[in-house]
Design a binder for these strands. Structure first.
Lengths: 189, 189
DNA sequence: GAGGCGCGTTCGTCAAATCGAACATTGGTG
DNA sequence: CACCAATGTTCGATTTGACGAACGCGCCTC
């Protein structure tokens, strides 16, 4: 949840949409979900229609019944390809010389991030089938060059470049130089 | 949020504790926080005492005022130095040639991991004061050489090497070569 | 020590969210 | 066609959380 903008108020509408989306994804009827979560279906109906300001127990019960993380309902997931070129991005001011840190990605709530290193040689693009919905992959190129990102629109990365993309869609990692090395962080909520 | 155990109900108690903890961390009085979040302090008082079942708008307002992610309140939340040299570590078998992936760290539940790149030059060791308890930092060296780890027992890393260490103890990052680049993943539970 | 100001708690009132039942609607079935 | 079993919606009654004022407490100032 971005502390960033829209600090204003009311994610009511987002909750309504997320609720309906997750319910349909789970293949449950409104009645069925209400029964499992032990909330009145009238309550659920009003929630999904945007009217409502549910209390914690209600939302909790729904998230449990839907088997989704709580934050999935209140925190909108928005996948997108993002690239930060080497030397770009928000720097962290350091009082100590000869040192700069750049924030590449702040971890969303409840995400799990596994860390990998990749060593790849040119010639064979590695196309990955989509992973779990909500998966996001982060790649920081350490050496060489590579085509990275969504299969239908990959991005060329040079050393130091950063790229994030939704892992639940077809994506590739294709080395362009020999001895290409990258750090891969796989984030699944 | 673990669909895991205790799928039962009511994270009321956890919310109460998290709320109080976050408020104290922010150095705010109950009255002050209530004023900023524009909720009655009586409401906040009851919430922190465990009685209560707040609605979304209330929690939202509080999380905004506390400047913490929403889920930090509803799903409230370990250290050792580990080194994996370039080329070592468990490989992930790939059916496709010219490609290897190495698991460096699997994300523990409920951890948040922020990703940074570091650019450092020799001459000035960057000593960090301890962060929040439970913080773990992961460093993958991309270029150059560096002394990394706990201040009293740093490790020298070469390109491709990986090192993890508790971030809640004094630690350093000291470049040994010019143009040293690293990826830093900061994990806080 | 009287007054003021901050803290966090408690209490009565009111608005609002939850509930359960009744409702209109659709689709399948004998 | 009548019937039943689903769907999601609307409506009144009741519960309940948010509110604001009052309270007890500790601290500092005059």
């Amino acid at each position: 949840m971005g502390r960033d903008k829209d600090a204003g108020h009311a994610p009511l509408r987002e909750i309504a949409l997320a609720l309906r989306k997750e319910r349909e994804r789970a293949g449950l009827s409104l009645t069925e979900l209400a029964k499992r979560a032990e909330v009145a279906k009238s309550t659920l109906s009003q929630l999904e229609s945007g009217n409502g300001n549910p209390n914690i127990e209600t939302i909790w019960a729904l998230s449990v019944a839907l088997d989704v993380p709580f934050s999935r309902l209140v925190d909108p997931p928005r996948p997108r390809v993002q690239v930060i070129r080497a030397g770009e991005g928000p720097r962290i001011g350091s009082s100590q010389a000869h040192y700069t840190a750049t924030v590449l990605s702040s971890c969303p709530p409840h995400a799990r991030r596994d860390i990998y290193t990749l060593n790849a040689e040119p010639g064979a693009a590695r196309a990955s089938d989509p992973h779990m919905p909500g998966t996001v992959e982060h790649v920081i190129l350490a050496a060489g060059r590579a085509l990275v990102g969504l299969s239908d629109d990959p991005v060329e990365l040079a050393p130091g470049d950063y790229c994030a993309y939704p892992g639940d869609r077809p994506h590739v990692f294709e080395a362009l130089d020999a001895g290409t090395v990258a750090v891969l962080v796989s984030e699944h909520v």
